[in-house]
Design a protein around this nucleic acid. Structure first.
Lengths: 155, 155
DNA sequence: ATAAATTTAATTTTACACAATTAAACATTA
DNA sequence: TAATGTTTAATTGTGTAAAATTAAATTTAT
């Protein structure tokens, strides 16, 4: 008797720890792969343009100028990430950086002509990428809705 | 005449360039937010444990040992990322690194006792995180399916 | 107005992430 | 087996990412 392989009465559920059962991993991997897929398109605009820099441009194309804080709120990035990134964009003459005269603590990032002219050639990027994904409009909307939900719950 | 505001006959479609209309940004933001949400849980296991290191442990808890190449294939990370990460994990005595005697080019990463004992306390992490998300099982499955599709198309 | 608390951007530190290159080891083929 | 080509991990260089700290400016309360 008692030769049964002892099922460890309080057996831990390790199955939730398998990579395939995680949500975070596919999110993490899909994000990196999609960012990587952007690269050749961004390189065409400028060999130095990175994806996070492109996100800054997307915002500035809409608003012309924003504070570092506003950029961070929109992109969910902090100044420790944005400051060096914006300094590189300043060197490329894509943006200007200056203190807000009404509040010397804030730095206003402004869109410069060299950054502005990148907008038109960037127009073809979204369509090009969507073609890679081979995803229906409906599923795309579902995906975006679910991702927005995740962001909302975690922010 | 010709005082009309010249509607630029070939008006570019800038609306696709708005941040809110992008797929990549929510993916990018959701990934970072979810990784950030993992932090307090991982800190409880060990203050030095990072999310990518946790992913390596998830694989080693399943397979005990894998080559760097196999880890990279599973995580979609290259050796330039994994090598320094694995060296840090080696210093923590979580994993061992040794050449494959049958193929001296390959480095085999093995799970050490100090890495193994982290598995049991890690079991509660997935449930804790899912609670944050407030997402139904069905929607979670949909999200994972769509993310897997994205990964598949881009890899 | 002045001290204290708060806000904000910058700085510092650590850790990914990946393209490009290098170098070593292995495999193939003549 | 010797030359060639391939595979693989490591290295190098650049660019995020984010927590923690610092410092300056502003606001608030006295």
């Amino acid at each position: 008797m008692a030769q049964a392989p002892e099922p460890t009465t309080s057996e831990e559920d390790f199955s939730l720890l398998k990579l395939e059962n995680q949500l975070c991993f596919p999110l993490y991997a899909a994000s990196r792969q999609l960012t990587k897929a952007y690269q050749p398109y961004l390189r065409e605009l400028d060999p130095d343009l990175t994806y996070p820099q492109y996100l800054v441009l997307l915002l500035l194309w809409e608003h012309q100028e924003m504070t570092v804080k506003e950029l961070g709120e929109n992109l969910l990035l902090d100044s420790g990430t944005l400051t060096p990134l914006l300094k590189r964009m300043e060197q490329k003459q894509w943006v200007s950086r200056r203190r807000d005269p009404r509040d010397e603590r804030s730095v206003i990032i402004g869109l410069l002509p060299a950054g502005e002219v990148l907008q038109k050639p960037a127009c073809s990027i979204p369509k090009g990428l969507l073609a890679h994904l081979e995803i229906s409009t409906k599923e795309l909307a579902t995906l975006r809705r679910l991702l927005d939900h995740v962001i909302k719950k975690l922010t």
